[in-house]
Nucleic acid binder design. Structure first.
Lengths: 248, 248
DNA sequence: TAAATCTAACGCTAAAGAGTGTGAACTTGT
DNA sequence: ACAAGTTCACACTCTTTAGCGTTAGATTTA
């Protein structure tokens, strides 16, 4: 339903009800949900699409996008992690995919500011979990702000895994200030830094520069990334690992 | 079933199966659960009660104990909190009861290291949630350690609500080192400190002193506390509030 | 004021989940 | 080696919960 609103730009309630063969009440409920997630805007009689820049940084959307690619990347990244070492990762959905696979390389010390990952890893035996505190941001389901940056700076981990929303030939980018600050702090406190991005992020830019690509020791992309984009990164002396996507 | 093991001290599997009219398999499963919660110890053929000092600091047990009293205390404590102010609380079940009522005094800034409270308050609108990071302790379901103490020390809140496992005429006590350090840090960073304890904690001691009672501005106990105990505290110039227990 | 739209409350249905028992395979102790 | 004890995998039941529609009442718009 969200996709339909996106395509049309603006749709009326009754129209949506007919298309999906459900009652108007259901349309209301679903749109309320989508609105609370920041995906669409409701007005009397219908709903319209949200500006793309807004919802791209939205969890509900990010979770459903490029799942196969993220899964592939996650499997590869986990292969880079040695049992017994320490890992820090940010509040990206790619990192969450990595978290789901961390059980395979226990024992492990895991550090994150991502509440969903904390929920996921808290009950897992063999994982020593360190949470990064800070102010809770519902849109990201994570802890950010000064407190978080301070907490990151007080730590040092063997591997840091971060993902950003855009990557050019020279820099990694992200659209939000608070997140940029946390990611930067993470990069500074990791012995080895991994940038994990799916192919849709390549050759794009966003508002804030997070760091030059030199800050990362390994860049992991999925196999759907265009050859030339990968080659351009390699030409700049970066190590680029390609994770094979299996699912459709 | 836990109670029966406690009373008997030690019971056999088959015996338990007969008493509760369930299969031996179910007894196994339930005891595994209780054991993972630290309530009992399993051995070949049966199970025995855990040393009381161990399971008293155990969440699963604490959650079921004195719920009516905690509920009363929580209602009273929430009445002490002004909308718009900031509150910090620890990983005690009493504090959790307080957290459930915090919705009533929004808007509010809430600070805690208790994961269950974070889960509870994260989706609540009107509450600005700050998490205290640190190492995750499954037995308490909270974040402790150096990182947590540091995070606490970097903050300052209007009200701090703390509960301890034992309170004498002069001091508050707790049996665990890491928790003591966090509670102390909390006391130091609150403008006004509230000690919330049910009547079973009075006139008792535990291994570590948390702080002298002078460190607290208000002590809240439930109405099942003996008069003379309350009076003794008041004689020492402490403000003691009594919360009326309603339920049986 | 009338029509359209929205919200709240209740009941229904289908799917998910927790809890339990059975029988087979495996461990442990005597 | 045997028996008692334990674990595993599967199937079954019961409870819980999520999602939808209907109706009725409130709100908004023309």
């Amino acid at each position: 339903m969200a996709e339909h609103v996106m395509r049309q730009g603006s749709v009326s309630m009754t129209e949506l009800a007919e298309i999906f063969e459900v009652s108007v009440m259901t349309v209301h409920r679903d749109l309320d949900l989508l609105e609370s997630q920041g995906m669409v805007r409701k007005f009397r009689g219908g709903a319209s699409a949200q500006a793309s820049s807004v919802f791209e940084s939205n969890i509900a959307y990010r979770k459903t996008a490029q799942t196969a690619e993220k899964e592939a990347i996650a499997r590869h990244v986990v292969g880079l992690i040695e049992p017994g070492s320490s890992v820090m990762f940010d509040d990206s959905t790619t990192a969450l995919a990595v978290a789901r696979h961390l059980v395979e390389v226990t024992p492990l010390t895991v550090v994150t500011n991502f509440l969903e990952a904390i929920r996921l890893l808290a009950p897992v035996p063999g994982i020593r979990l360190m949470a990064l505190g800070g102010e809770y941001y519902p849109t990201h389901d994570s802890f950010l702000g000064v407190a978080c940056v301070d907490a990151v700076e007080a730590m040092n981990t063997d591997t840091v895994v971060v993902s950003t929303s855009a990557v050019s030939d020279r820099h990694a980018f992200h659209q939000e200030q608070e997140i940029v600050l946390v990611k930067r702090a993470m990069l500074a406190s990791g012995t080895r830094c991994v940038l994990a991005v799916d192919h849709t992020k390549l050759d794009r830019v966003a508002l804030h520069r997070v760091a030059p690509l030199e800050a990362f020791d390994i860049i992991v992309v999925d196999s759907r990334a265009p050859e030339e984009a990968i080659q351009r990164l390699r030409d700049r002396h970066h190590r680029v690992d390609v994770a094979e996507v299996t699912e459709p």
